[in-house]
């Protein structure tokens, strides 16, 4: 009988090996900043409890299934055994205690994560503000203090909190840099705030993780964490050397499609704040004569030609 359930044990073993053996390799469990670190601690803390619950249930399961299988000797058979106040109290109270043990750090973390993280050195630094705007299927970043704007990448100073003001020009997206911390939605006509911070220099990948159509998979961006001085130098160089963002160029970015990395020495914030203006992108598309096309319609099929935009959007003539 034991043999029958062998695969379960094998799987359980496999599971623990994956979870416990390879922690440092998985991005969520290999944090590069205080926010992700706090979340990792919470995750590992909870996995401990969960492993305990699994062990208890599996041990009970194994013992009961083996001991009470149908066999000749049935001294233990009690068909009317129907309950036990004591046992039932135990398995009501213990889960309640576990949930209290999980709820307290959860709630504390929920509150902590809405505040700027404290840097590794312990000193409180003023957060850098970056506005992140999702547009199908790219990310536009504005640095209001520095007066610069980037597409599909950001540079941030390490050891300094960054406050992202998230919004979207069209679909509901989710801003996520797993190495630095959990995600939050970017929505049209709304502003949500997310704090992240990098403890190390390096490049971390970020993405939209909330499905939003054809180009979703490739709606990614890079986060370059550099020293404060390198950051200041980059911001200054960008401000003086990069081209200005023209309104025409910005309106082109409002069309559905992917984009290359770009850098500008001015921001779009003077024309539009997508957190207040829900339909700017849609109206821009209308103004430019771009009509949404049925992906199975004949126009969309023509649009698969390389000469035209390849994302189900074609210019009407």
């Amino acid at each position: 009988m034991f043999k029958r359930f062998k695969p379960f044990f094998a799987l359980g073993l496999l599971l623990s090996v994956f979870f416990l053996g390879g922690c440092s390799n998985y991005i969520v469990l290999d944090p590069k900043g205080p926010v992700a670190a706090q979340q990792k601690d919470l995750i590992l803390y909870s996995i401990g409890f969960m492993a305990l619950i699994c062990v208890v249930v599996y041990v009970l399961f194994t013992v009961i299934v083996i001991k009470y299988r149908d066999r000749k000797n049935d001294d233990n058979f009690e068909p009317d055994h129907h309950g036990s106040k004591k046992l039932e109290t135990i398995w009501t109270v213990i889960p309640i205690l576990i949930i209290i043990a999980l709820a307290i750090p959860t709630v504390t973390s929920i509150y902590d994560l809405e505040k700027a993280p404290v840097s590794a050195s312990g000193e409180k630094k003023e957060p850098l503000v970056i506005t992140a705007t999702a547009v199908d299927w790219k990310w536009i970043f504005s640095y209001p203090e520095q007066g610069i704007e980037t597409v599909n990448y950001i540079n941030i100073p390490k050891d300094r909190p960054v406050q992202f003001k998230l919004t979207s020009a069209d679909s509901m997206s989710s801003f996520w840099v797993p190495a630095l911390g959990g995600q939050k939605y970017a929505m049209p006509g709304m502003e949500t705030k997310l704090y992240l911070q990098a403890d190390h220099t390096g490049t971390f990948s970020g993405r939209n993780s909330n499905f939003n159509g054809e180009g979703f998979t490739h709606q990614i961006f890079d986060v370059h964490s550099v020293s404060q001085s390198d950051f200041d130098k980059w911001a200054k160089d960008t401000k003086s050397k990069a081209p200005k963002l023209s309104k025409k160029q910005y309106d082109q970015l409002m069309l559905q499609g992917e984009a290359k990395k770009m850098t500008f020495s001015s921001t779009h914030l003077k024309w539009v704040d997508h957190a207040k203006d829900r339909d700017y992108a849609v109206k821009t598309r209308e103004r430019l004569g771009v009509v949404p096309q049925n992906p199975h319609g004949s126009k969309a099929k023509d649009a698969n030609n390389p000469e035209q935009d390849s994302h189900g959007v074609s210019h009407s003539h």
Binding site: Q39, L42, I43, S46, I47, M50, G182, K184
Partner: peptide, 13 residues
């Protein structure tokens, strides 16, 4: 685990 909102920010999606 998913119910723990602070951790869910990493599991979500």
């Amino acid at each position: 685990m998913l119910a723990m909102a602070a951790a869910d920010y990493q599991y979500h999606n």
